[in-house]
Design a protein around this nucleic acid. Structure first.
Lengths: 248, 248
DNA sequence: AAAATTCTTTGACCCAGATCAAGTGCGCGA
DNA sequence: TCGCGCACTTGATCTGGGTCAAAGAATTTT
């Protein structure tokens, strides 16, 4: 009976179509069951704000479908995106009261949330989950620092190429159909959102995308559907030597 | 006897003149004693590299005295500083093999290190320490994202002012002698290092510092010793609404 | 289907900050 | 005391990306 439960519970918690990154492969059935007890779903429409910076945040959770962004805004309206949340990404700051950023749905969004207090209690009792959370936070820290290099030292063209490589790498739809080095995916962001991520204006984003298209680095079907014939070439354009494990 | 040990061990581990941020106020004597067993000191001269990006890193630790930086470098030499390590700051990535960044001593530096394997083992057994590490990593993540706003959206003058507020807030020497809103501290970085932190050139850094001096926001004694007559004014110049708990 | 709204592209011009190039001043070893 | 080197400053000029403006393309509303 115990054995049966252990087997029937996979790492995917319950009915979520994603693998919760807060849950590790070593987590066992009773931990997953406790997670089931405190979880619930929330849906948002494109453009809706999930939570405002400074607001009390009484949940943590993962993106199930859709895209959300973390942004910071100055009083005069300048905004900087500091994080991009794709399906399976974790949101929330265990041990912290409020949100440090605005979290905004840029597409229709479904999140799988866990009530924060019981989640923290579960974390206290479950070293696996606490460890997994530290892992994830270290990953986010690496990503943030990588992005500091992009923001501080790369040219507009390199910035665009860097963003495209990140989206390409994370996009689920491409795992199958790549005829050797080529990639196809959809841009989940408007030109303005890309600009806010890259520290540019939307006009510059548009111009640089046109330039990459003109130079054959990418091609576009419509405004959002991107084809990358040679991913290695895109990496070069990004000024990025590492391939992030996608090639070779 | 147990009680005596608990009392005699303060949060400061052994003979370190700093409070290790990896150690929390709730840690008890036996945990601290195990830390004592695996700790050792390392000294570096100004300019020396503590560890290269990608190298195997078999320790974690805290800065005791001096300043170190975390930097990323592109193949063509463009450099971005992604972290500034002041006394008590933690270095190291529990659970990770190598260093993701170059760590460089910018002044003479003393670090208190713990051998990584036993530290990780201690972490496994000691939820306090694992929790403290998650706290610290979340702090670093907040700092990195705050810096993304600086890099992506602030002007050169605002960038300089932002850096000065950060250094001023962390500088130990000023806790005492502030005649109401004023601050005195030493710049621990060369103009070039500041430029690498801010995504600017050293010439622009120099010019903007001169401009802030001309406008009475700061004054300099020598090249490095800074006086800020009105910290609130400096915060305005940084485009920063929050005071980070230093005022009011 | 026409109209309104939103997203995107492209052009013309401008400016903050980069680049190139001298200097200045201080500390340190001979 | 000299002079060498390094950190810093300042000037002149250039340019990548911002700003302002206008006009497509999509999508939604009426």
């Amino acid at each position: 009976m115990l054995n049966e439960k252990t087997v029937s519970h996979s790492v995917e918690c319950g009915d979520c179509p994603i693998r919760h990154r807060a849950v590790c492969a070593r987590c066992e059935s009773d931990e997953l069951e406790r997670l089931e007890e405190i979880k619930y779903y929330r849906s948002f429409e494109a453009g809706q704000t999930v939570i405002w910076s400074g607001d009390r945040m009484d949940f943590v959770g993962s993106v199930v479908t859709g895209i959300a962004t973390l942004t910071q805004t100055m009083e005069d309206g300048r905004t900087q995106m500091v994080g991009l949340l794709l399906p399976s990404d974790f949101v929330g700051r265990p041990g912290r009261e409020g949100s440090a950023y605005d979290v905004v749905a840029t597409t229709d969004l479904v999140m799988c949330c866990f009530r924060k207090k019981p989640f923290e209690a579960l974390m206290e009792r479950t070293p696996h989950i606490a460890h997994r959370l530290l892992e994830m936070t270290l990953d986010e820290l690496d990503a943030a620092r990588e992005w500091m290099l992009v923001l501080g030292r790369k040219t507009a063209r390199e910035k665009i190429a860097s963003l495209l490589t990140i989206i390409a790498r994370r996009d689920a739809s491409l795992k199958l159909q790549t005829p050797k080095g080529s990639m196809v995916f959809d841009l989940p962001l408007t030109r303005e959102a890309m600009a806010d991520y890259l520290g540019l204006t939307l006009e510059t984003v548009s111009r640089q995308i046109s330039a990459l298209k003109r130079d054959g680095v990418i091609s576009l079907q419509g405004k959002r559907h991107v084809t990358v014939p040679d991913f290695g070439r895109l990496l070069e354009e990004a000024g990025d030597d590492s391939d992030g494990g996608m090639l070779a």
